[in-house]
Structures are given as C-alpha cells and as structure tokens.
Amino acid sequence: MKEVKLAGQMVPAIGIGTWHMGDDPTKEDQEIQAIRAGLDAGAKVVDTAEMYGDGNSETLVGQALAPYQRSEIYLISKVLPNNASQAQMEAHLDASLQRLQTDYLDLYLYHWRGNIPLAETIAELDRLKQTGKIRAWGVSNFDVPDLEELWQLPTGKNVAANENLYNLETRGIEFNLTDWQAEHELPLIAYSPVGGQHNELHTTMLINPVVQEIAAQHQVSPHEILLAWTIHAGNTIAIPQSSQVKHVAANVKAAEIELTPTELKQLDREYPSPDHRVPLAVN
C-alpha cells in the first residue's frame, strides 16, 4: 500500500474525507460504520473541518473514532478564515477538539485565505503547535503565490501540507503548483479526487470509456482507478468521501493498484495536463 510522509509520519496514501457527513440524523449509523470500515481496511488519515455541517461532521467523526486507539489515527481538521485570528483561533480549535473527543489534532489546516493577515494566522498556528493541541499545521486552497508568501514568513516553512481540489479531470495545479510542492517537499492532500460523493463537480471521469476499460482490466471500479491515478506521483494523499461501507473499504484498497505507463498515457490523452496557468479550482 502506497504511503506518504506527512509531518514526519508515514501514512497510507488514501484516507477518509467527511465533507457532507453528519448532517442527516437518519444516516448517522451508516456514516459511522463507513468511517470505521475505512479504518478497518487500512486507512489512517481522517479529514474533517469545523465548516462541514457547522461542526456536525466533527461530532460524527468523534463518535466514529471512539473505539479506536487515538495514536493509530491521523486526524485532520480545519479552521475557517474568519476564525483564524490570534484572538479567536484557539477557542475554535478547542471547540473542534471537544466535538472530536480528543485532546490534540495531528494536523490543523487554515481552510482558505481570508482577510486576516497571513502572518498573524501562521504565527498563531505555530503557537498552538507549541501548546501540544496540534502536532502540525498546514494550509488549504493555496496556490503558488500564496505558498511563496508563506515561505517568507518566520515560521512559514513549518507548513506540513497543502490541501487542494485535484483529480484526473481537474489538473490545473499541475501547471506549476505540484512541481513547486514536490521541489519544497510539501505533500499535497487531494480533495474531491473522484469528483465528490454526488458528483458535485459534474465530472465525466466515472463514465469515461478509457477509465472504465482500465478498471475492467484491473477488476476494480472506476472510482478505484481514479484514486490510484491521483496518488501515483508519490507525494499525494487522496481523501475520497463516501457513506457506503463497501465503497469506503474499496477506496482504501485502491492504494495497492499500480497503473502501468501505458495506462497513465491513455488517461493523459483523455484528460491532458494543462499547458497554461488556470485559476485554482475550489469546491
């Protein structure tokens, strides 16, 4: 199973996303079982955020993780831009920790840039790391200019990851961001790697004949091929989200799929890498 180093820890390259989870009480048991199925299949990374369902996702994750050894989970959450100030961030972190039923996060991400000065947000993230409430901090939805600005800050190089929308059809970050991150040894966390649970991105990837043909050759689903593609470069962790037990377990196992050079070229022909800069995709 492919692994990636995240803040000094080796973790499986496919984790568990939880966006849109925790909002429907009738699905609570099913969603808890889905998260647990992913962990039981070998996942370690669980990604959530205070924004997701206004805390509902974190509450659900806390319930799902209750039977597990905390040290066996790599837990990520995110702070909203409006809450990322020196005055407010710790209180919001404490609220996330309470919902998650834990006393620390492995990684705390600045969800996207807002109006608070970046220097203030990063200084506070680094201070919170010193308290032990977070083991590492990172960013999300940052493009190259954002990372270059971050790199100039006194503690900016302590950043542990950047989380962005990335999949076979949405490859804009390959123009220069993925190379920048590889050069600076900054792991990428890819959200919506198969286009979202309900295909919010209206992608054609899952019904693409070439994707389906490669999936058939490997005797797996198109979802699994898309995940294997997302992590094939070696510096990326994919965090697909699903509420289906069977689906989540299969997603995790996709980290064992090796796509051949021929298959990668076939997929490139269907969804080429960009030859010009495009705006950062955000969902």
Rank of each mutant, 00 (worst) to 15 (best):
R277M: 15
E256F: 03
P209V: 11
A123N: 07
A255G: 14
M10V: 10
I134S: 03
I231C: 06
H198R: 14
L188G: 00
G172A: 14
A233H: 13
Y110N: 03
M1R: 13
N283M: 14
G196V: 08
K2E: 14
K129D: 03
A281H: 11
H184F: 08
H276Q: 12
L105P: 04
P25Y: 06
A87E: 13
T121F: 13
P209T: 11
R99Y: 10
G53E: 02
Q33W: 05
V45K: 07
A34D: 05
L267G: 02
A216V: 10
A182E: 09
L259H: 05
T121D: 03
M10H: 14
I14K: 06
Q212T: 07
Q244D: 10
V245S: 04
Y166M: 09
D179L: 13
W112F: 15
S221N: 10
G22Y: 09
W137P: 12
V45W: 03
V79S: 07
E148K: 15
D143G: 06
G195P: 00
V4I: 06
A182I: 10
S77K: 03
Q69W: 06
Y68A: 01
P117E: 06
N56P: 02
D40V: 14
Q266R: 15
P187A: 09
L93N: 02
I214N: 06
R171C: 02
V252K: 02
Q69S: 14
Q219Y: 00
R277Q: 15
H20V: 04
W137K: 08
H218D: 02
Q30H: 09
Y104R: 08
D94S: 12
I116E: 03
N82W: 13
L168A: 10
G62D: 01
L153Y: 05
P240A: 10
T102I: 08
K253S: 09
E183H: 15
P222L: 11
I225W: 07
H184Q: 07
A84T: 10
A91I: 07
I16L: 13
D126L: 06
D268K: 12
A136T: 12
L107P: 04
P187R: 05
D179T: 12
S221G: 09
Q197S: 11
I35C: 01
L188E: 01
I35N: 00
P187S: 10
I237M: 10
A95C: 08
L165T: 01
L177C: 02
T230S: 08
W180I: 04
H218Y: 05
V248H: 10
L60Q: 03
V11A: 09
A7D: 06
I173N: 05
A41S: 14
T204P: 09
M89S: 08
E28W: 01
Q266W: 14
I73Q: 04
V79I: 15
R36E: 15
Q181T: 09
A182Q: 13
T170E: 12
A215K: 02
Q241H: 10
R127P: 13
T48W: 07
F175C: 04
S243M: 10
V45N: 00
H247L: 12
Q181Y: 12
G172S: 13
P222D: 04
